[in-house]
C-alpha cells in the first residue's frame, strides 16, 4: 500500500516536471447545481463531493487548482477551447462524450439512477419523464419509449414533476434522495437503473499528461480507501 502511494507520488512528480510550466494552475470546471456532487454553498463557494475530491486529487498530484463554474450545456465546448482544463461535474463516462473529450478513470461506480414521482403508480415505461438535457438519463429515456421532456437545470426537472408537467424525473439517485427525504409529496419509485460507465473527470484529448496525473491520483485514493470514505460521507452510492 505504502509503496503504491510512493510510486504514484513519484509518478506524479516526474510527470509534473515533464510538464513544468504548462499547467501551473489547473482550472477545474464544474456546474455548481448538482448536490451532493457539486453545488454552491451559503458562502458562494463550490462545495460537495467533487469539491473535496478535486482538492484532494490536486494535493496528491501536486497541482494548484482553481474552481470555475460553467453552464452545463456549454461545459464541453468551453473545455475544448481551453477556458478551463478539466470537467469535474458528475459527468458520466459515455462513448458519445469520449468522441469529443478524454476521461480519467471513473471515481464513482456506474451510477444508479432513480425515478422520482408524486405517486407510486406513475407510468415509467410510457409516461412523460423529465431529465436534464445532455445527460445519460436523457438518452436513456429517449431510447426507452417513454416521452422525454428535457430541462437545462436539474432543479427544473424536479419542478416539472411537482407541477404535473411530467410523471416522473430520472436523475442520479444521490441527487434525488435528499429531495425525496425533504419533500413529503415526492418519493423514489420503481427500480433503480444502472447507466453509464461511472463518473470521471473530463479533459481535452490533447492533455494526456494531465489526464494520467489525475488518473494516478484517483487510483491512489481508490487504493488507500479515502475515495470510499468520501463516497460514503456524501452518500454518492456504491463504493469501490
Amino acid at each position: 500500500m505504502k509503496n503504491l502511494i510512493l510510486s504514484t507520488a513519484a509518478l506524479a512528480l516526474t510527470a509534473g516536471m515533464a510538464l513544468a510550466g504548462s499547467h501551473s494552475v489547473v482550472r477545474m470546471g464544474t456546474e455548481g447545481a448538482y448536490p451532493p456532487y457539486n453545488f454552491i454553498d451559503d458562502n458562494g463557494e463550490v462545495a460537495g463531493f467533487e469539491r473535496e475530491l478535486g482538492d484532494e486529487l490536486c494535493a496528491r498530484a501536486e497541482l494548484t487548482c482553481e474552481w470555475v463554474t460553467n453552464d452545463w450545456d456549454s461545459i464541453i465546448p468551453n473545455l475544448v477551447s481551453g477556458n478551463y482544463d478539466t470537467i469535474i461535474a458528475g459527468m458520466s463516462i459515455t462513448d458519445e462524450r469520449k468522441e469529443k473529450i478524454d476521461f480519467t478513470t471513473n471515481y464513482t461506480q456506474p451510477d444508479p439512477s432513480a425515478f422520482l414521482a408524486m405517486s407510486a403508480d406513475a407510468d415509467l415505461k410510457g409516461g412523460v419523464i423529465a431529465a436534464q438535457s445532455n445527460t445519460i438519463q436523457a438518452s436513456y429515456i429517449a431510447e426507452s419509449g417513454a416521452t422525454l421532456v428535457e430541462f437545462a437545470t436539474p432543479e427544473e426537472t424536479v419542478a416539472a414533476v411537482k407541477n404535473g408537467e411530467a410523471d416522473a424525473v430520472l436523475a442520479d439517485k444521490a441527487y434525488l434522495e435528499p429531495i425525496a427525504d425533504s419533500d413529503a409529496d415526492l418519493a423514489i419509485v420503481g427500480e433503480s437503473v444502472l447507466i453509464g460507465g461511472g463518473v470521471g473527470m473530463g479533459l481535452r484529448k490533447s492533455d494526456t499528461e494531465l489526464r494520467d496525473k489525475f488518473t494516478a491520483a484517483i487510483d491512489s485514493m481508490k487504493a488507500d480507501g479515502t475515495l470510499n470514505a468520501l463516497i460514503e460521507k456524501h452518500g454518492i452510492g456504491e463504493t469501490f
Binding site: G32, A33, P35, P36, F39, I40, D41, D42, A47, G48, T153, E155, V158, P178, I179, D181, S182, D183
Partner: peptide
C-alpha cells in the same frame, strides 16, 4: 435561479 431553487437542509444552513 440558483438562490431561489429548492434547498434541502443537507446542503445549506
Amino acid at each position: 435561479r440558483e438562490l431561489g431553487g429548492t434547498k434541502t437542509e443537507r446542503f445549506t444552513d
